[in-house]
Amino acid sequence: MKPHVLKQALGIDVAKDSLSLCLGTLTQDLEKQFVAGGDVANDPKGFQRMEKWLAKLEVHKEKLVVVMEATGVYHEALALYLHQKGYAVSVMQSGRVKRYAQSLSQRSKTDALDSRMLAMLGCERKLTPWSPPDGTLRHLKALSRERSFLLKEKNVEKNRLHAIEASAYGNPREVKRQAKRLKLVEAQLQEIEGEMKGLVAQDKALAGKIQCLESIPGVSFISAATVVGETCGFSEITSAKQLASYAGYDVVLKESGAFRGDTKISKKGNSHIRSILHMPSMTAVRVNPTLRQFYTRLKPNKAKPIVALVAVQRKLLLLMYSLFKRNEYYDPLFEIKKQQGPKPLLHRIEAI
């Protein structure tokens, strides 16, 4: 008699061209069994081969969770395919997977071992289900990343043009070609920013929420749209602490015995968010009274001014999250009202 199956997890180690499979089964006596499925291609034909293998093992969708690690863009097609087929899919962040793997004292690292580890993780933990991001937000994220890449390219081309012009052996034709390349990058940047504005304008609800973020002094449309796109409208964010960790603003401290390390942010998160918030934070400490006061209070206590500025970035990000979720405009007197607290009941009755 076969033991009753409580749960099954399909661990998939995703690579650019291949998928390594391992099916884990948790039985009623809390024993875990694993069946390696080998490798299949990371394409539609490989997805179909994987489904045939699962059918051969008589796997039931209602008891199965598919676990994979977020690997750039190479997991997206597979996750979308399985979600459309009705499978429960969980896409894990690399940091969580790494910490779980370290807890197993697994010294070797192969695709087969990684897929087995993911299957074990799925059997042991209750994971958050994945769902495809909104099409508009996914497009907005792609545009913001293309813009980020072109900004870096613009700086490279600008520095190269300056070096050519300053050279004692400069060639006028080379200068002309380099100037054309720089103008092309600048034109493409304007084109992308126009596409971002047009895309947001098509969704009235999204446009209204981004206007709420723009009401924060120092936050521009591009900054707001980039943060919203990178977080897919904060769809998977459930708390301020989680958002800070996602963006790499979570504070870490290393201490051991007599050793006392410096307190700093982890930077193990979305670098695009931290990059886009740098200029708004510099503007905010000049034009936003609340954040200017916050920055002025922190700056004397920090060894470097940039540390206080990073704290402003974190506060700015959490403020954007709060306004987006509540669909509210920025209130410059919010902190003052919060400190004063609610008015006494007698005063409110007299006012009425």
Rank of each mutant, 00 (worst) to 15 (best):
residue 303 A to F: 06
residue 240 A to E: 15
residue 76 E to D: 13
residue 288 N to H: 02
residue 296 T to N: 07
residue 75 H to E: 12
residue 346 L to Q: 12
residue 352 I to R: 15
residue 132 P to F: 09
residue 60 H to G: 10
residue 144 S to G: 10
residue 96 R to Y: 14
residue 139 H to T: 15
residue 194 G to V: 02
residue 111 D to F: 06
residue 17 D to V: 12
residue 311 A to V: 01
residue 215 S to I: 01
residue 253 L to T: 13
residue 80 L to I: 08
residue 324 F to V: 08
residue 40 V to I: 09
residue 96 R to V: 14
residue 350 E to N: 12
residue 202 Q to I: 07
residue 133 P to K: 06
residue 176 K to R: 11
residue 49 R to G: 09
residue 94 S to H: 07
residue 194 G to Q: 11
residue 16 K to S: 15
residue 352 I to S: 13
residue 11 G to E: 03
residue 82 L to Y: 04
residue 111 D to G: 11
residue 224 A to E: 00
residue 10 L to W: 05
residue 3 P to G: 02
residue 184 L to N: 14
residue 267 K to H: 14
residue 325 K to H: 09
residue 112 A to N: 08
residue 179 A to P: 02
residue 91 V to C: 04
residue 22 C to T: 11
residue 126 K to M: 14
residue 298 L to S: 02
residue 183 K to M: 10
residue 74 Y to I: 06
residue 270 N to M: 08
residue 24 G to R: 02
residue 277 L to E: 00
residue 248 G to V: 03
residue 151 L to K: 15
residue 80 L to C: 09
residue 42 N to W: 09
residue 98 K to D: 09
residue 91 V to H: 02
residue 142 A to Y: 07
residue 124 E to Y: 04
residue 29 D to V: 09
residue 251 V to P: 01
residue 156 V to S: 13
residue 17 D to M: 15
residue 204 K to M: 03
residue 252 V to R: 14
residue 333 L to G: 06
residue 300 P to A: 04
residue 176 K to A: 09
residue 293 Q to L: 11
residue 21 L to T: 07
residue 209 K to N: 02
residue 142 A to R: 09
residue 17 D to I: 10
residue 277 L to G: 00
residue 136 T to E: 04
residue 88 A to C: 11
residue 90 S to N: 07
residue 73 V to T: 10
residue 78 L to G: 03
residue 89 V to I: 07
residue 1 M to D: 10
residue 121 L to T: 03
residue 245 S to Y: 05
residue 85 K to P: 03
residue 298 L to R: 00
residue 138 R to P: 04
residue 83 H to G: 01
residue 274 R to S: 03
residue 133 P to F: 08
residue 136 T to I: 14
